[in-house]
Amino acid sequence: MTRYAVVGLGVLGGATLLALARAGVECIGFDAGRVGHPHGASGGGETRIFRTAVADAPAYRLLLDRSRECWTDLDGSHATPARPVFRPCGALTVGPPGDPRVRAVAGSGRSAVLGPEAAGERWPAHRVAPDEVAVLDPGGGLLHAASATRALVAEARRLGAQVRERSPVLEVVRTGGRVIVRSGDGDDVLDGIVVATGHYRFPPGAGPGPDGVVNRRVVLTWFPVRDPDRFSSAAFPPGVRLGGSAFTFFPAVDGRAIKINVQVSQPRTAGPDDHHPPVRPDYPASWPEQPAARIDGLGACPVRQETYVEGYTPGGRGIVDLVGSAPPVVTLGGFSGQGFKYAPAVGELAADLLRTGVPASTAFAGVAATAG
């Protein structure tokens, strides 16, 4: 029987393992830690924005639609009240209507544009200036990162996939059209592998990893809120403020503080093991504008700061690459902060490439090399 492996069970590796299990093939997933551990993107800041109103080509919108379907299904079968996967609360873009990014979302055909007065009534925490608009993506929502990753792997396991946590891959050997994966659990002889180790080093023998990916530190800051009801996901959906100092914002999932990610240049990490570099306490003081100037009800001083590492490509697109055919080896990486949105559909794409060398769905044909 054909056997495949997925090395790295973050959100993209977990999605690929699930796609292989759904295809009915024998598959094994390896991770050096526990699934959903805090040292990768799955542990970075708890939540992610999900969007459907984007200016990308139709193929990318199909990826988003498929991913939303998968996230919704997983939320129905694997979420708990304490650990939801996906909250379909919409996503916002707030800023000047002339900003190219605002225009792109407003012109996507998947959004509704509200003027400042209507926006202020619907989302009272936002200070929407007279020369700004709020664009609602009703198909958007909030992903809970670690829960989403765990749900993907749990469903793969339910369908028959083997899952080996705390089992780092020590070496990959290609020989005789097969691939040997050597881990702490011994040797497994397989017919192909997907390598999705994120910012971690690729296992020796697996190849150099996707070209052009730079690992950068993402710094997140939480500010306390005075009225938690104004900052629930229903009253304060995740989104981005544009014009002036741009930043993304997230609802108070703990009822106490909202997460802010100011869009400033992020430094490269010192190396693959540099998971959580320290953050200077005065980091927010360097921002051109404080979020409280545009969001009503925030405390002045941060209550929490956290970092995680993301892989970025120059064009901001992730890489899905078939780098070998005998045996097949597929590499994933560099999704530039966009991986969670597309993960379930990209996992299906990677599984198709591994098994057949081509994406099975024509919707994926145009994005086989650069899915982001």
Score class of each variant (00 low, 15 high):
R110K: 12
G115N: 07
A145S: 11
R127I: 12
G139L: 13
A112H: 15
G109E: 09
D131W: 01
H144M: 14
L114V: 07
P100Y: 12
P97I: 01
L143S: 02
A119Y: 04
P96A: 14
D131K: 05
P96N: 09
P138A: 10
A112K: 13
A104R: 13
H126G: 07
G109P: 11
G120I: 09
P116H: 00
G115Q: 07
D137C: 09
P116K: 01
S111Q: 04
A118Y: 08
V105G: 03
G120D: 02
V133G: 05
A112Y: 12
A125Q: 10
P97R: 05
A125D: 14
G141C: 09
L142G: 07
A134P: 06
G141V: 06
E117G: 11
E132K: 04
V113M: 05
L136T: 00
V133H: 01
A118I: 00
A134K: 01
G95T: 00
G98W: 05
A125E: 13
G95Q: 01
P100T: 11
V128W: 02
P130A: 00
H126T: 02
R103G: 13
P130F: 01
G140P: 02
D131T: 08
H144F: 15
R110F: 13
A145R: 06
W123A: 07
G139N: 14
R110A: 15
D137F: 08
D137H: 06
R103M: 14
D99K: 05
L114P: 00
A145H: 04
H126K: 01
A104M: 14
A119V: 00
V113P: 03
L136N: 02
A106S: 06
R127Y: 08
L142P: 06
G139Y: 12
G98M: 04
P96H: 14
V135I: 00
V113Q: 02
V113F: 06
V133M: 06
G141R: 03
R127M: 02
G141M: 05
P124F: 13
V102T: 09
R122L: 14
E132L: 07
H144G: 07
A104Y: 11
V128S: 04
P116Y: 03
V102D: 03
V113Y: 05
P97V: 06
V133R: 02
D99Q: 10
G109N: 12
P138T: 09
R103I: 14
G115P: 03
A134T: 08
G115L: 05
S108R: 10
V133C: 06
H126Q: 15
R101G: 10
G107K: 12
G98V: 08
L136V: 15
R101D: 13
G95L: 03
G98Y: 05
R103Q: 15
V113W: 06
E121T: 11
P130W: 04
A129D: 03
G141W: 05
P138F: 09
D99T: 05
R103C: 15
A106P: 06
A145M: 06
V94R: 00
G120C: 01
R127K: 10
S108M: 11
A112N: 13
P100C: 13
L142Q: 03
S108L: 12
G120M: 05
A118S: 13
L114Q: 02
A119I: 03
P130I: 01
G120T: 10
H126F: 14
G139E: 14
G95V: 01
